[in-house]
């Protein structure tokens, strides 16, 4: 992670070394110039697309976030921080805290399910390894919306769980399972479990198994081996998995929208309603930028903390 960061900062220092003097040097410089040109021609469509349809739109959101709502739901440009003050006001900030809380719980749950799963496939998969993997990839490839919807079929008052429990005589009145904190966290956990499992598997698969055997030959117990050898060695997978789950989970709006009620609103729902129903785009923009800024700080703190542990 850290090395990659340095790589990013130096911007490919190796390629920008000064050309050697003399005839050979000039020839090399011209070759380098030609390569640079060809590379840029090949990259041009992607560069153009990402500048026009990612960088500029994000800048528009940034500009909007300092504006205010006009009389007809349009954005009046300006420079005011009142939208940001609103984001961090006691009325709205609890929603952001809730989003981070739900996402954190879901991330821990996916880790608790995904780690043993990935460990099993990597260590005991044997001949059926690719079957086990395909079964993880399948939910990863299928629609998140539909997988979320399937929990409505299971949890609603005439749903599968309530029908089974009623017919068994366990309950008389249907349980209220949908539109609860439980259903939203369940939905997030279910939705993002493959995002956790796949990077964990990738790093456990690469792990040198003789290190585990060595620890056990030297008398370490299974648990001790797991905690002091396997888990630290699979740390890159844990970091990648938690980020891949946590980031989309914080900003998710499908799960709280379908499986949650008014008390489970997350920041994604607020952004959506600001853009599509309340039509306060300026405030929605400030929410979007605040979300990205808080996420960025959280990720940096997390990566630094894990990185420090790895070194120490």
């Amino acid at each position: 992670m850290i090395q990659k960061g340095e790589d990013l900062l130096s911007g490919g220092a190796a390629a920008s070394a000064p050309a050697e003097p003399g005839l050979v040097g000039r020839g090399l410089a011209r070759l380098r110039g030609r390569r640079f040109l060809v590379a840029n021609i090949l990259l041009a469509p992607t560069t153009m697309w990402l500048v026009l349809f990612m960088v500029l739109p994000l800048l528009v959101v940034l500009v909007y976030s300092f504006g205010s709502r006009g009389a007809f739901g349009d954005v009046v440009l300006g420079f005011s921080l009142h939208n940001y003050a609103k984001v961090f006001s006691p009325l709205w900030f609890p929603i952001i805290l809730r989003s981070f809380g739900f996402a954190a719980v879901a991330t821990l749950l996916t880790l608790a399910m995904g780690y043993p799963l990935a460990y099993f496939i990597a260590m005991y998969g044997g001949r059926r390894k690719s079957l086990y993997l395909i079964l993880i990839m399948l939910p990863f490839w299928t629609s998140y919306l539909i997988r979320t919807y399937s929990w409505i079929v299971i949890l609603r008052s005439q749903g599968v769980v309530n029908t089974v429990l009623t017919s068994l005589g366990v309950i008389n009145d249907p349980l209220n399972l949908l539109n609860t904190r439980f259903s939203v966290i369940l939905g997030l956990t279910y939705g993002f479990l493959p995002f956790m499992t796949l990077p964990l598997y990738a790093s456990l698969e690469k792990l040198d198994k003789s290190l585990i055997e060595a620890a056990q030959d030297l008398g370490a117990s299974r648990l001790w081996t797991l905690l002091t050898v396997t888990v630290p060695l699979s740390l890159p997978g844990i970091v990648a998995g938690t980020l891949l789950v946590f980031i989309p989970a914080v900003g998710d709006f499908v799960t709280p929208d379908l499986l949650g009620g008014p008390d489970q609103t997350m920041i994604g729902n607020v952004i959506q309603s600001q853009f599509l129903s309340t039509r306060d785009w300026a405030y929605g923009s400030a929410l979007s930028f605040s979300l990205m800024a808080i996420l960025l700080v959280a990720i940096l703190l997390y990566v630094r903390k894990v990185g420090a542990e790895e070194l120490g």
Partner: peptide, 16 residues
Amino acid sequence: VIPEIVFGVALLSGFN
């Protein structure tokens, strides 16, 4: 890594 909803509203704002 951008949250999908932010990407979505950014494009909407950009088109607008």
